[in-house]
C-alpha cells in the first residue's frame, strides 16, 4: 500500500441533453479518495450519484472536469487520455445494485473471465478465482450459475470479480439494495476489509444509513452538487 490518491476528480460536470431537455446532472463535483480509504456517497434519488460514479468509472464521460486514477490523468473533460477499456480492466472493479454477472458463466467463471481478459492464464486464473471466492465465503457455490445463487451470494461473486485484477479502485452503486440488512452490512464490511487489506480506494453509493459506520469518509450529493459530509457516529 502506498500513499497517494486512488481517485482525484476535479470539477466534474455532466450535462445530459441540450436546449429544452438539458439536465445538469452533476456540477463541479470534486472528490479525493486515498488508497485504502472507503468513501460513501449519499444523496436523494436523481441527485447525480450514479452519474458521478460512472464518470469516474470511465463509462460515462463528463462534460467537463478531470479524473485522475492512481495519479494518472485519464479523463480531461470528455476526452479520454488512454484506452479506457484496458484501463478499466487493469484498475477498476465494479459492483452494481442488480446482478451483473454473466448469466451463462458459473460463479467461478465469472471471476476467472475478468482475470483471463487481463492476460492471466486460464489455469492460474481459475486457482486465483477459487481463492477469491473462498475469501468471500462462496467457494462452495463456485460451480453454480448466477440464477442458482441467492442475491447475497451473487453480490459476493460480483465483489470477487471486482477484486480479480487487484484494482486500484472499486466502485459500487447501491450494492446492498437487493439484500437484507444483515447481508448488506456484511457486504459493506467486506468493502472496508478489501480497501484496508488490498489498499484499494473504494467508493460506495448507498441509501443505507445503518451501515455508515464502516466508511472512512462520507460525501453527499444533492441536485448535482457534491459536498463532503460529516462522518456519522454509530450505525
Amino acid at each position: 500500500m502506498h500513499d497517494g490518491f486512488a481517485i482525484e476528480t476535479h470539477s466534474l460536470t455532466k450535462v445530459y441533453g441540450s436546449g429544452n431537455t438539458e439536465v445538469i446532472a452533476m456540477h463541479d463535483a470534486t472528490m479525493t479518495v486515498r488508497r485504502g480509504e472507503v468513501a460513501a456517497l449519499l444523496g436523494p434519488s436523481g441527485s447525480g450519484k450514479s452519474t458521478f460514479l460512472t464518470a469516474i468509472g470511465l463509462i460515462n464521460p463528463p462534460t467537463s472536469g478531470s479524473v485522475k486514477i492512481d495519479g494518472q490523468l485519464v479523463m480531461d473533460g470528455p476526452a479520454s487520455q488512454t484506452n479506457l477499456r484496458t484501463f478499466r480492466r487493469k484498475h477498476i472493479g465494479f459492483v452494481f445494485q442488480k446482478s451483473n454477472l454473466i448469466p451463462f458463466l458459473s460463479a467461478i467463471e465469472n471471476v476467472q473471465i475478468a482475470m483471463e481478459l487481463n492476460g492471466t492464464t486460464p489455469r492460474s486464473a481459475r486457482k486465483q478465482a477459487m481463492e477469491l471466492l473462498d475469501y468471500l465465503g462462496v467457494a462452495d457455490r463456485a460451480d453454480g450459475l448466477p440464477t442458482a445463487l441467492s442475491g447475497g451470494q451473487q453480490q459476493r461473486v460480483a465483489v470477487a470479480r471486482a477484486l480479480a485484477n487487484k484494482p486500484s479502485i472499486i466502485l459500487a452503486d447501491e450494492p446492498t439494495a437487493a439484500l437484507d440488512s444483515h447481508r448488506g452490512q456484511q457486504v459493506m464490511e467486506l468493502f472496508a476489509r478489501v480497501a484496508h487489506e488490498q489498499g484499494a480506494g473504494v467508493v460506495v453509493v448507498t441509501h443505507d444509513h445503518r451501515s455508515l459506520s464502516v466508511f472512512d469518509t462520507i460525501y453527499e450529493m444533492e441536485d448535482g452538487l457534491m459536498r463532503k459530509g460529516e462522518k456519522a457516529e454509530g450505525g
Binding site: I59, R85, T86, F87, R88, R89, K90, F94, N100, L101, I102, P103, F104, I113, A114, L117, N118, R161
Partner: peptide
C-alpha cells in the same frame, strides 16, 4: 447485457 458487462470489465472488441 452480457456484452455490455464484458465491455465494462474491459473485454476488448476482439473477444
Amino acid at each position: 447485457h452480457s456484452i455490455a458487462l464484458l465491455k465494462l470489465i474491459g473485454a476488448p472488441n476482439t473477444v
